[in-house]
């Protein structure tokens, strides 16, 4: 069961992102990706880190339609969920960090590095998404079986707990975004200086 869920999410995610890695680096887009990383990482990183509201996080609000799942056998349902949610493009992404990933791949020096990072990103995102699902299933089962678990069980504290975790994840996402943005800005500045002062 665990290996099946992991594979259903990680395999399509790895395939989609590996192809994207090739597509984004086959044509040199670094000149576009680096300023984009600096601007996007700087803006959304600062926003998420300080907890302010600004421009909405890019993305779509599409959700997997019930018609695709109703009446489908469990195995096919898992395949549909895995193929749509594993790569991460189809549904809403609550944190801005996700849309930095294609730009980070486009900033890689050449197709080999692009495919390696794309494959790693897809595998990491799909596996992490599956791991979160397995964690939720395990918690729900433990609560249903009456096993004491380290999660709040009544609705209000459960909701507040989830809300608090969202705040923490958002702040963490912001810190990594800002670091990436600053790194991209530093690379741009260094490249400009290297051109000004030839060795």
């Amino acid at each position: 069961m665990r290996a099946g869920v992991l594979a259903a999410y990680a395999v399509p995610a790895t395939a989609v992102w590996a192809l994207l890695g090739l597509a984004l680096t086959a044509v040199p887009l670094r000149w576009l990706a680096l300023p984009l990383l600096a601007a996007y990482g700087g803006y959304y990183g600062a926003l998420e880190l300080t907890g302010r509201s600004g421009l909405p996080v890019p993305g779509r609000s599409w959700q997997v339609p019930q018609s695709m799942l109703i009446g489908a056998p469990p195995r096919r349902r898992l395949l549909v969920w895995g193929a749509l949610l594993g790569p991460g493009f189809a549904t809403r992404n609550p944190y801005a960090g996700f849309w930095l990933l294609p730009a980070a791949i486009a900033a890689m020096p050449g197709p080999a590095a692009g495919v390696v990072l794309g494959t790693a990103v897809g595998c990491a995102h799909g596996s992490a998404r599956a791991a979160a699902l397995l964690r939720d299933v395990a918690q729900t089962r433990a609560v249903a079986a009456g096993v004491p678990v380290a999660v709040s069980q009544d609705a209000l504290t459960g909701h507040l707990d989830a809300l608090l975790k969202t705040v923490y994840w958002r702040r963490f996402d912001g810190a990594v975004l800002l670091t990436t943005g600053l790194l991209a800005a530093a690379i741009l500045a260094a490249a400009a200086l290297a051109r000004l002062i030839p060795a």
Binding site: L37, G88, R92, N93, P94, Y95, G97, F98, L100, L101, A104, I105, A107, M108, P109, A113, L117, A120, V121, G122, A124, H125, G126, S127, A128, R129, A131, A132, L133, R135, D136, A162, L163, K165, T166, W169, F172, D173, V176, L177, T179, T180, L183, A184, A186, I187, A190
Partner: peptide
């Protein structure tokens, strides 16, 4: 390893961290 390679490796590591956390944290979103 040149400075450019080191910078690309650091960027790739940060991107991987974002990929893991964005995948894992999604189920907490309201």
């Amino acid at each position: 390893m040149t400075a450019w390679t080191a910078a690309a490796a650091a960027g790739a590591a940060l991107a991987l961290l974002l990929a893991v956390t964005n995948g894992y944290a999604k189920s907490y979103s309201p």
